[in-house]
């Protein structure tokens, strides 16, 4: 956190793998070690274009929209930057996905689907599956 006595910005480190997805104006959710369990909001205000070669990260700045009552310089923070919010997205558990893009339908026929976001637990399905259809868990 840096800034003059009244106005603080949050300085965040973003991995080079993720930096292309960051744009100015994106919402940021922050937790601070000094405020355990509370979430604050900010927006990305500046992206520093020079990468820190030691830590392989970019510095970005975020301005608070929902500011904690007391702040001091150099506090520690952990932040999530909102890249996209999608309503009514369809997700399936990751273990139901065969290979990269196949699911097993109820009649044991494989079907190709188009996947969106993925993490280790869930996969978003953008195309090829209806919300009324049943899929089976593949045999291990």
């Amino acid at each position: 956190m840096v800034g003059d006595a009244a106005d603080f910005v949050a300085e965040l480190q973003v991995d080079e793998n993720d930096i292309v997805r960051i744009q100015k104006g994106q919402r940021v959710l922050l937790t601070l070690d000094s405020y355990k369990g509370q979430v604050f909001e900010a927006v990305v205000s500046r992206i520093d274009p020079i990468m820190n070669e030691v830590s392989r990260t970019f510095s970005i700045e975020a301005e608070f929209t929902d500011r904690p009552p007391v702040l001091y310089p150099n506090l520690t923070t952990e932040a999530n930057i909102l890249i996209r919010v999608k309503e009514n997205a369809m997700t399936i558990p990751r273990s139901y996905l065969v290979g990269d893009s196949l699911v097993i339908m109820e009649n044991k026929e494989p079907r190709k689907v188009v996947t969106g976001l993925k993490d280790y637990l869930k996969v978003e399905i953008t195309e090829g599956l209806n919300k009324d259809e049943t899929i089976l868990q593949p045999n291990q």
């Binding site: 997805r21 959710l29 369990g37 952990e78 999530n80 919010v85």
Partner: peptide, 28 residues
């Protein structure tokens, strides 16, 4: 990595499923 990510704590996004692209270990 901290178990409670900020986005999962916030009232607005608690209900949905949040894909977090890269979680870094904290605890400096």
């Amino acid at each position: 990595p901290s178990l409670e990510q900020p986005v999962n704590l916030s009232d607005e996004f608690k209900g949905g499923y949040n894909f977090i692209r890269s979680v870094k270990s904290s605890g400096s």
